[in-house]
Amino acid sequence: MMIALPVHDANSAPASRPRLPERAGIGLRSQHYQQVLDANPAVGFFEVHAENYLVAGGPFHHYLGLIRERYPLSIHGVGLSIGAQQPLDTEHLQRLAVLLERYQPQAFSEHLAWSSHGELFLNDLLPLAYDSATLERVCEHVDQVQTRLQRQMLLENPATYLEFTGSTMDEAAFIGEVVRRTGCGLLLDVNNAYVSSVNQHWDAQAYLHALPLAAVGEIHLAGFAEDRDAAGARLLIDNHGAPVDEAVWRLYAEVLQLIGATPTLLERDNHIPPLDLLVQEAQRAQRLLDASRPARQQASA
C-alpha cells in the first residue's frame, strides 16, 4: 500500500520542497481582496479553502492570482472527505490537482474527517471511529491524494463533539499511525486539540505530546463558542467565529517550545472582522514565533 513519493524520498533535497514561511498568516476572504492589494498587510501567507476556488472564472480567480504574486499560499481543502466509507471522488481530486497546478501553493491540507456520502455533500467535518478499518481506509485515501497531487499533504486533527464506542485507539495514536504509514504531514489545529480535549475530557497537553509533532508542517489557531451537553458539561464548538481563546494561546506557546517556529494560520470563518483586526491577531502569533527558536530543518524523517 505504501507508495514512494518524491516528497519523502531520501534523495530529494529538502530545500526544493515548497514550504510556507515560519510566520503567521491569515485566511483570505473575498470581502478583503481589494484591501489586501491596496495595503499589503504584513502577514507571512494567505490560506484559502480550495472548494471556493473550484469555479470557472470571475473575481475569485482574478484576485487570488494577484495576491498569489505577492504572498505565499496555503490551499486548505474542505470537501475531499478523506474519512468517507466510499472511494475518494476522483473528479474532485482532479479538480484539486488543476487548482494546485495553477496556484502552486506552498502547502496543501485536508481534514481527518468525512463530509460526503453517496452523492450527497453534507458540508460539515464529521467524526470517525478510530479503528483498524478506518485506519486502512484513511491511509489508502491519503496515499491516493499524495500520489495524484505529487506532493505531501498535511492532515488536520479534527474538532469532535462525541466518540464512538467502537474506537480501538486514541486519536493521537491514530494520527501518528497515518503519518507513519503515508508520510503525510500534520496540520496541527491547536484550537481543535483544545476543543476536543475539553469535549472528550482528555488532557490537552498529553494529547499534544502524543501527536507526531515532528511531522507538523502548519498550525491553525481559531476561536470557539461554548455550549453544554445533556449533563451540563462544557461542550466547545469550533465555530471560527471569535478571537483565539487565552487557553489556546497558552497551548500554542507550549507547542512552539516543543517544535520551534512553524507556519501559523489565524482562522476566521464566521463574524469576519475588519482586516486590521485579523492582522493584529496574526501579529500576536508572530511575536510568539519571533520569540521561539528557529524551525527544525526537516518536518519529518
Binding site: 470581502q31 461542550l235 464548538i237 465555530n239
Partner: peptide, 16 residues
C-alpha cells in the same frame, strides 16, 4: 452585496 465564498470549515452556532 459582495459575493462570498461559501465553503467553510467552521461549525455553526451550537446545539440548540
Amino acid at each position: 452585496v459582495a459575493m462570498k465564498g461559501k465553503n467553510d470549515c467552521a461549525a455553526g452556532p451550537g446545539t440548540t
